[in-house]
Design a protein around this nucleic acid. Structure first.
Lengths: 328, 328
DNA sequence: AGGCGGATTGAAAACGTTTTCAGACGATAC
DNA sequence: GTATCGTCTGAAAACGTTTTCAATCCGCCT
């Protein structure tokens, strides 16, 4: 139906093989190459990528599995991955799991059926646990979250350290009843909790943490509840941007202001955290770097499949703003 | 190398055709089907999508071309498109053009090579102009932005009406020197300007608009400049979320507060617009509906290719907040 | 002059499926 | 008992490329 390589060959008076070689920069004499290129332009020929991929056994496709592209962290991650991919003349297929292990399983299956070149993947905690056993026939680079052992390459930030930094910053600014609010689906949240916990203990403070589903709603509920019960904390650490939003709303709904009543801090330097009141103190993650690094690891792994697995740890940056200011 | 349909066939003691029929829910007797399914499980067989697509001539892939996934409008648009796609067992290939016509051209080429089933596309104004002449061999649904004539289906919001609504709202609340700040790359911005302009004239107000590149930086510069020169406006209408952010920053940098000094309003109900001060008055777009509707149009078009092109116009919703409150 | 080597070229195989076509079988209708 | 039909099955073609392999051509060496 549509014009194929044979039509071009016929139009140029050469064989299909020669056309293919022109397309792939193979060895072709200058005049034939020119004739073929003219024929390509004349016929408006477009290669069929499915056929090409089937025959060449290279999909030139990388998979990207995240929980939700609307999470700003993953938005800019995906953008940086795509930029790197298209620079390498590759395509990206993007999947949203909504933290749902079933969807995760289905997308992992899809990745195999696409015969992707490599996968960049932010797994749920439950799936991450069993990830080391599974055998994929493409390299996998874990981002943001990681499994226990480390069969796969990974790039993460120093979550425990960053959370500790936040605790230290708050303590140094005169806060001591620091409440921690963490997600319950990712290794990342766990690590942040651990960092929070040890920093608290190290400074002789009493840990006071809760784990909830990583939504704004769940976070809002949890904070509302905590504010209503017992002695009120004077500071809060929240484990990601979306939850921080929920916490902020809950705080406002309770009629509280930051930093006057509560020093609200958390992860992810999203736009609104800068604009709101005197600004929220947050840990900024080098998201674009994470994406770029992940792609680098992927490509290196493709070149040297037998290299030992590597984990790259980038560090977050504390952005101090009004919400953690010393008060009173 | 990897296990193919023939290996499964051998393991099950049937022909490749039968395995294929089991996979595609073709007519197969119950016992053979069972044997084949067992063999599939035993061999861990995964179909090769490239081969399947090549032979069946159906890519089951829809393309999505937007300017930048980090623009929240496109973020949630892409999510709603993907949800609809995966519900229909299709994949999505996502492309970011950065408003760059060259990248647009390259991605359009890519779409043809992928032999996509259909395309959802937010074109640059320059590309949109020539879009009607081009002949794609897949249906195209324009979103958010549209070309002049309308050879393709489209789903947009009533931009002129919404901008007019904003002007009316501001005027009703006592503002009359209303400055308009619009992007210069999309038909959408043009329409919003037109709506702004006619509403101003209709109400006997003097239009005062500027077109700039649709960034936060450009918007910030433009507003800063405007605030410094001549009689200061008492209200501003900004044509999209990112530019609104720039405008807000510029306003704050100039030491002004909303609504006291300036009634800042615009498009896109992003998170931060609600949280900032007493909130920014904005036009909220039904983004998820736009995506869903676009997919609907696409599927209908696939079923009935000869139907006349349709344009679906959804309407934005005015979300009145503090920034447009009557003052003085 | 004959042979050899490198550079180009074309014919045909291969990639892993789906689909067409025809055959086999059993049942139903006469 | 035979003809007819419908259902299931397998062999082989087809999808549009890339890649292998052998052939051809040309120049150069002995």
């Amino acid at each position: 139906m549509t014009t194929g390589i044979k039509d071009v060959a016929k139009a140029a008076g050469v064989s299909a093989a020669t056309v293919s070689r022109v397309l792939g920069n193979g060895p072709v004499s200058a005049d034939l190459r020119e004739k073929v290129e003219a024929a390509i332009r004349a016929t408006g020929y477009r290669p069929n990528l499915s056929a090409r991929r089937l025959r060449s056994q290279h999909s030139r496709t990388i998979g990207l599995i995240v929980s939700d592209i609307r999470n700003p962290f993953f938005t800019t991650l995906s953008r940086s991955v795509e930029d790197a991919a298209y620079r390498a003349e590759m395509r990206v297929v993007l999947c949203n799991t909504d933290e749902n292990p079933d969807r995760e399983a289905m997308y992992l299956r899809l990745m195999q059926e696409e015969r992707i070149t490599g996968l960049i993947y932010a797994p749920t905690r439950t799936t991450a646990a069993s990830l080391d056993e599974r055998n994929f026939d493409f390299p996998v680079v874990l981002v943001d979250r990681t499994g226990p052992n480390g069969v796969h390459d990974a790039v993460v930030i120093d979550n425990a350290g960053a959370a500790g930094q936040l605790v230290g910053h708050l303590h140094d600014h005169g806060h001591s009843r620091i409440f921690g609010l963490f997600g319950n689906t990712s290794s990342t949240a766990i690590e942040r909790h651990d960092g929070y916990r040890s920093a608290m203990i190290m400074r002789g403070l009493e840990p006071d943490a809760r784990f909830v589903a990583p939504h704004d709603r769940a976070a809002a509920e949890a904070l509302t509840e905590r504010l209503a019960s017992g002695e009120r904390p004077d500071a809060v650490v929240v484990s990601n941007g979306l939850m921080l939003l929920g916490a902020y709303r809950a705080m406002r709904a309770a009629g509280l202001e930051t930093p006057r009543d509560l020093a609200l801090t958390g992860f992810d330097n999203e736009t609104w955290t800068e604009l709101v009141g005197s600004g929220l103190t947050v840990i900024e993650q080098p998201v674009a770097d994470i994406g770029r690094t992940a792609m680098d690891l992927l490509f290196e792994r493709l070149n040297r499949p037998d290299m030992a697995p590597r984990k790259v740890v980038l560090s977050g940056r504390l952005v101090a703003r009004g919400s953690s200011a010393r008060v009173g």
